[in-house]
Design a protein around this nucleic acid. Sequence first.
DNA 1: ACTTAATTTGCAACATTATAACACTTCTAT
DNA 2: ATAGAAGTGTTATAATGTTGCAAATTAAGT
Lengths: 167, 167
Amino acid sequence: MPRDATPTALKVHHDHDRCIADALAAAAEVCRELGARFTPLRRRVLEIVWQSHKPLGAYGILDVLAAEGRRPMPPTVYRALDFLVAKGLVHRIPSLNAFIGCTRPGRRHDGQYLICHNCGTVAELTDEGLNTALGKAARGHGFAVESVLTEAVGLCPACAERRKTAS
Amino acid sequence: MPRDATPTALKVHHDHDRCIADALAAAAEVCRELGARFTPLRRRVLEIVWQSHKPLGAYGILDVLAAEGRRPMPPTVYRALDFLVAKGLVHRIPSLNAFIGCTRPGRRHDGQYLICHNCGTVAELTDEGLNTALGKAARGHGFAVESVLTEAVGLCPACAERRKTAS
DNA sequence: ACTTAATTTGCAACATTATAACACTTCTAT
DNA sequence: ATAGAAGTGTTATAATGTTGCAAATTAAGT
Ligand SMILES: [Zn+2]
Ligand SMILES: [Zn+2]
Ligand SMILES: [Zn+2]
Ligand SMILES: [Zn+2]
């Protein structure tokens, strides 16, 4: 896969079940490599995050789990999310208080998140050039960057198309 | 002032009272130009935000106002903050749930925020090159960026110096 | 000046997001 | 088997943010 292929979230049609299956398999592999435990709860939370096309909040995850009989309390879900974020399997989008599955798990990376203000989907870019450029600019002022999170708000391709057609 | 002069927050010594006075004067001017009302409450909230060297949360502002006799309720402060953010006088840092005074009020801009994980100060950069680079990358995937917010976490010059000296 | 409309602030109640503390269970390693 | 570590369940609470309506203030028109 080319380094900057268009993020799945920006593609109109794709086999999302496959996305989920791949993500879970990759997560299991990452955990195995890191010696971390990919427990049923963590697996299920990751799956729920991936099943949502939009970023999902912790309480949204709780609702899904509640609907399927389990009745976990907030700390349970937050702990699973903390784990998934720490292992780089999920990203938190601070401006949305919500989480999305990482499309490039395994390697550590700083992402750029493209948030559609019309449909709410979020796509993840990983442009290292942007990060190094910021690192350089900050360094010029004596600031040593360790991690970066970029949130862009705008209109996704699907919504732009829809808007054009409607007019 | 050169376009990318080092942000005030990264300078070790400066006359912060002067910072605050300048910011309030600039805010009054911006509001006048926009035909917006710079009421005492809004002015006071902006002042409180500027008086803090670190980003301040809405409830932190409430505490300051409460300590001086006034007992405003959360909506009062949130509305003042909404106004100040809308007019570009204050920025919200989502990952901190907190606010900082804008160092370049007036012109609309997307900033990069340098958050020191040691002392908590935040400096604002405004590197348009970074924003246009992200805009271009996103556009390559069909996404039309409208606004960007970049949060970098790392070590500020003062803390780096302190750490070097201590070792 | 007087009236009216719009904006701003006060206030009460509530909604959402996140964490602390501790008990209990499950897994891992010796 | 047993001890320690890691994970989960549970209760309660903290921190952050919003809705809706009433009262006060301000701006604008007559
Ligand atoms: Zn990622
Ligand atoms: Zn969209
Ligand atoms: Zn600014
Ligand atoms: Zn610092």
